Computed example of a mutant assay.
Amino acid sequence: YIDSLDGISGLDFSNAETRKNYTDNFWSGVYGIDSRYIEELNKTLDKPIDLTAFEKGELVVLSAMTDDEGNLLIQPGQAITVVGESGEQVFTVATGFLDADFQNGRGNERGTAPDLYISEQAIEKLSGETKIFRIAFDTIDSSYDKGIMEQLQSITASSPGITILSRYEKQQEMAGYLLTSRIIAAGLSAVFLLIGIMNFINTMVVSVNTRKHEFATLESIGMTKKQIRNVLLWEGGYYWSISFLLLATLGTAIYIPIYSAFRRMVPYAAFHYPVISLLVVAAIVLLVCLATPVITFMQNVKQSVVERLRQN
């Protein structure tokens, strides 16, 4: 384990004296944990930890620590000697390891050696003076989160030294950030959608007005207004099909780099394809694509065929 620290944060153990000075000040945080942590860990292990030996104070559990190649730095069955107030005590490394980030966030409590996790009974024998470091609550039903949080805040209100870290509070804080980002994203999307719709309407109005002499000629040789409307509806449908196809392919592909970049900042972020939003936008665009050319044409046919033929 010491060898793995060589070269990290400016440490250089090539000098024997430097190495000795470092190890002479080697100390670790020792934590007594509830046996239920071991019971939960055993469910994931092929070779479970001896719970009786753990509770007797014979075993020590460590967080998983590996080198760059993924090999364990400390092997199960090895001995670790802890020098405490009442003398030395030898522990055997357990057959299973806790997650690398188990109970993280200890800040300055972390020493230069790996943190050691032993039973509550063992820590009372190791030192005559212990303190409760952390109490963890895991709610099965999230509907109780708010009420539990309020009760904990009420209980600890008179003890300023107690800090509460809550997933519920983090979720509420994150919900505020997400709401802000959604409002901004929705606003920008609405602006881009409006610009696109106005551009399409302008293009179709100019196109229909430019072709009104053509429509009048077709009408004069027997084509009905209903048939012309159907042609315009088909044209609008083609425009919509092209735009929706680009939205479903190219537009969807744009999500990939955006989500990848966001995932690097927020590792626990999850992506859900906006199916409902896509269908709503598709319906709005379809309505605009079908209605615009027909309404423009109906405005032009208020004049007679002869009058429209005379116009350049």
Rank of each mutant, 00 (worst) to 15 (best):
Y144E: 09
G7F: 02
T217S: 11
G237D: 05
L194D: 05
I140G: 04
A79T: 13
E169I: 12
S4Y: 15
W234Q: 12
L233T: 04
A248R: 00
S127Q: 12
D101R: 14
L72H: 01
V275N: 02
A136E: 15
L152E: 02
D67E: 05
V231C: 04
F97R: 02
A100L: 10
V288D: 03
A16G: 06
D99E: 15
K146L: 07
N104C: 07
D141A: 15
G57V: 11
E150Y: 05
V285C: 10
M204Q: 11
S207N: 13
Q103V: 11
L233W: 04
S159V: 10
M65K: 09
N71W: 02
I295G: 00
W234F: 15
T203S: 11
G96N: 07
A79L: 12
S119W: 02
N104S: 12
R264L: 10
K212S: 13
V294C: 03
D145C: 06
F26C: 07
F244D: 02
A100Y: 14
S28R: 00
V82Y: 03
E214N: 11
T163R: 12
G105C: 11
V93M: 04
P257V: 00
Y177N: 12
G10E: 08
E55M: 10
N199S: 10
G105Q: 10
L233H: 01
G105F: 12
V281P: 01
I195L: 15
V266S: 13
F54L: 04
S304G: 14
V93R: 00
G7S: 05
L51F: 05
L218N: 05
T249I: 09
V281M: 05
E69C: 01
A291L: 14
T52Q: 13
K47Y: 09
L279P: 00
Y268W: 10
G105D: 11
A269F: 14
G251D: 03
E40T: 10
D46F: 07
I242W: 06
A136Q: 11
Q299D: 09
A190H: 04
V275D: 01
N15R: 11
D50N: 15
F91L: 03
E58N: 09
E129P: 00
N42H: 11
T224A: 09
F262S: 13
A94L: 07
I33L: 09
V93Q: 02
D138H: 10
S220K: 07
G176W: 03
G147E: 15
I132M: 13
M65P: 00
V208S: 04
V301P: 00
G236Q: 01
D12E: 08
E88N: 13
G251I: 03
M149W: 05
V306P: 05
L245D: 00
V30M: 03
I242A: 13
F97Q: 02
E109R: 08
D46Y: 06
D68A: 09
L72W: 02
R310G: 15
